[in-house]
């Protein structure tokens, strides 16, 4: 039951994200546009490139979608609305997000196209930069909750949301989550202007529809993760828990898209340098501060 609700919720979220992205990039607001675009993609011919690695080419879009769905599986929308409340929830979401990289490498290598391959390897460079900034803020969150259970993590934010308790971690996690779903400031793997859409370049028809859907769901999953880890998940006055979850997820998703709209693109080597020279020390500092605060009983 909760599986169905969560999947439907993710799809609705993906639809909202598509609408928002349309609004930001084209300035138009047509509620039917994403559905029409999807229908058009499904009906269009699906071209296969010359000498592709068929296995990787076909698997990649599906794997991206599965990884995004699995990441959402451990995130609670309300105290009971969760697919699997794993004892290792905070670690599991990292494991699921790691497969985004595998999917993009496959999508890059599979079609036997230069632009796609460059896009795939670029994402590998990004992963090495941002992956620690996903793991370390979650570590600090788990320190405060004294548990890796995502429900316990939300429960630990009764007093102060983690956004205010550890603003540094929130900032780093937010930036890293933009890089995970290769949204605009970090969209070099699928840069439209310069790489002819990178990993998406050789995909057409139904496969491209799945690839795009996977990315939208990924954005929603990351927004849900930000909401659960830093914005207190379902916590909030007056309204029922699931409404709060939905509102927070949508707000975070909108913020992610807006950030991409206003920031300049970052090249992978600059991202690497900043993440390793500035981001990781800051993340360690965040863990230290949270540890001290927890020991002090704040």
């Amino acid at each position: 039951m909760s599986v169905l609700i969560i999947v439907l919720g993710l799809l609705a979220g993906a639809y909202a994200v598509a609408l928002l992205e349309d609004r930001l990039t084209r300035g138009s607001f047509a509620p039917a546009a994403p559905l029409l675009a999807a229908a058009a993609l499904l009906a269009r011919e699906s071209i296969v490139t010359r000498k592709p690695d068929r296995l990787l080419f076909e698997t990649a879009p599906v794997l991206l979608l599965i990884a995004a769905l699995l990441a959402a599986a451990v995130l609670p929308l309300s105290p009971t609305l969760i697919v699997a409340d794993l004892a290792t929830g905070g670690l599991f979401i990292n494991a699921a997000l790691a497969y985004v990289l595998v999917a993009l490498l496959m999508a890059g290598w599979g079609p036997d196209g230069a632009y796609a391959m460059v896009g795939g390897w670029r994402f590998l460079g990004q992963v090495i930069a941002y992956s620690m900034l996903i793991v370390m803020p979650i570590t600090a969150v788990a320190i405060r909750a004294e548990s890796l259970l995502t429900t316990a993590i939300v429960g630990s934010q009764e007093g102060w949301w983690n956004m205010f308790y550890q603003p540094l971690g929130f900032l780093l996690f937010f930036i890293a989550s933009l890089a995970v779903c290769f949204l605009p400031p970090f969209d070099r793997p699928s840069a439209e202007g310069e790489l002819a859409a990178g990993v998406e370049a050789e995909y057409t028809g139904a496969r491209l529809a799945i690839l795009r859907l996977g990315r939208m769901v990924l954005v929603v999953s990351l927004a849900a993760a930000t909401s659960v880890f830093f914005l207190g998940g379902w916590l909030g006055p007056w309204l029922p828990p699931w409404v709060w979850s939905a509102l927070k997820v949508l707000a975070v998703a909108a913020l992610m898209l807006l950030a991409g709209y206003y920031l300049p693109r970052v090249r992978e080597e600059h991202l690497l340098a900043w993440c390793w020279k500035l981001g990781i020390p800051l993340a360690l500092l965040n863990i230290f501060i949270v540890g001290v605060m927890v020991l002090a009983g704040l």
Binding site: T88, L91, N94, A98, L101, V102, L105, W121, L124, V127
Partner: peptide, 21 residues
Amino acid sequence: AEFLGVLQIMMMATEMSIMAI
């Protein structure tokens, strides 16, 4: 061994992708 399993799944994804390049 839930923790070890999830850790293995997480670590190897990144490790083997680096191996690939």
